[in-house]
Computed example of a mutant assay.
Amino acid sequence: MNITPFPTFTWSHARQQLLTECPRKYAYHYYLSHNGWLSDSNSFQKQCYRLKKLVDLPAFFGQVIHEVVHDAIKEMVQYNTVPDVEMLSRRARLKLRQAFLDSTTHAESWFHQPNRYTMFWEIYHDGYLREQASKRITERLILCFRHLRSSSSWSDVISPHVKNIGYDNPFRSIYAFKTKIYAMVDHIYKKDYNYIVVDWTTAHDQSDDVRQLSLLAYHVMKSYHVPIDQVVVRREYLLKGSAHTYHFTAADIRSVEQYIDESINTMRNYQKCPEKNEPVGIEKFPRNATSLCARCHYKELCEAST
């Protein structure tokens, strides 16, 4: 692995969302935490990196659901076995239990190697997980997997009449605007002439980020060199047991490309040296003081600098 003084510049919708939320948080996350995993990095880099690796319980719950579903699909494709709800729930509970042990019993190990252990934001700041929150997560596990198994996407995925093509690597990149563009694509399968993009979500509300979903369509269109009218995006709400399906147009894709181009140009304004992706000084990344600050991973850094 090459050790560079600055990270490689890439683009993603999540990165733009973070910049919109707070440029100072963007700086901590993408620049000041760089190389913080190295033993000879300075204490500030290490602190930024540790804070970057914190996970809050709802987000980790969603991550676990995605991992278990991804593994189940891979297992089904390779070995033709389909785990039931109890098996899926058991696998998820094991991951959650290990994360809890990491955050408590192995807290000292996490401090020194935050990339190898999990630390819950709630335990880091409060010292404990609320019993009610833990119970609610456990109840939602079974609900999510029941809805997964009864969803139309899952019925397609396990059908011998479709071709599963997106189970190997959910992290996908394309090259556009002289930049590597990343997207997290949960699953893709081909049904007849259509490429179906499935986006599993554990979110409560059903207010879709249509731009994010159109970006998934854009990635699949570019990756498989197919026209946009052959790409279908379906968001599966695992907590609700419902789904929204989207068909995007050439005009939507032009809008996506404009959004990416404008976003990249905005991010370039925070580069002192674009060739190296060297950032401007931290003082050039303004803070956005909002209600989100209370749950920000980097709030201790902001509080220390005021």
Rank of each mutant, 00 (worst) to 15 (best):
M1K: 03
M1R: 03
T4R: 15
P7W: 10
F9E: 12
W11I: 00
S12N: 05
H13P: 01
Q16D: 12
E21W: 15
E21A: 14
P23D: 04
Y26D: 01
Y28I: 10
Y28L: 09
H29R: 02
N35A: 07
N35E: 10
N35F: 05
W37P: 05
S39V: 09
N42D: 15
S43G: 07
F44L: 15
Q45D: 13
Q47N: 14
L51T: 04
L51G: 03
K52G: 03
K52S: 06
K52T: 04
V55E: 08
F61A: 10
V64N: 06
H66V: 09
V69Q: 05
H70T: 13
H70N: 10
A72H: 07
K74N: 14
Y79T: 07
T81C: 11
V82M: 15
V82G: 02
D84W: 15
V85S: 13
V85C: 13
V85F: 01
L88W: 01
S89F: 03
R90M: 09
R93Q: 14
K95Y: 03
L96T: 07
D102S: 12
H106R: 12
S109Y: 09
F111R: 08
Q113W: 02
N115H: 12
R116N: 14
R116S: 11
T118D: 03
M119E: 06
E122K: 02
Y124H: 15
H125S: 09
H125P: 04
H125G: 06
G127F: 00
G127R: 02
R130Y: 12
R130V: 08
E131H: 11
E131S: 11
A133W: 11
A133Y: 06
K135Y: 08
E139T: 06
R140Y: 10
I142V: 08
I142K: 06
C144V: 04
R146G: 06
R146T: 08
H147K: 04
H147T: 00
S153T: 02
S155Q: 10
D156E: 06
S159T: 12
P160V: 11
G166Y: 00
Y167T: 14
D168G: 06
P170N: 05
S173Y: 05
F177R: 11
F177M: 08
Y182R: 13
M184P: 00
H187R: 07
I188Y: 01
K190H: 07
K190S: 04
Y193Q: 08
N194M: 14
N194P: 04
Y195W: 12
V198H: 01
T202F: 00
A203V: 02
D208P: 12
D209V: 12
V210Q: 03
L213A: 05
S214E: 02
L215M: 11
S223Q: 13
P227F: 13
I228A: 01
V232S: 02
V233R: 00
R235H: 05
K240V: 14
H247K: 09
T249S: 07
A250Y: 08
D252S: 15
I253N: 01
V256T: 07
D261L: 10
S263W: 03
S263A: 08
R268C: 11
Q271E: 13
P274G: 03
N277R: 07
E278I: 10
E278C: 12
I282D: 09
E283K: 06
K284N: 05
P286Q: 13
N288G: 05
N288H: 15
A289Y: 14
S291P: 00
S305P: 00
T306H: 09
T306K: 06
T306Q: 15
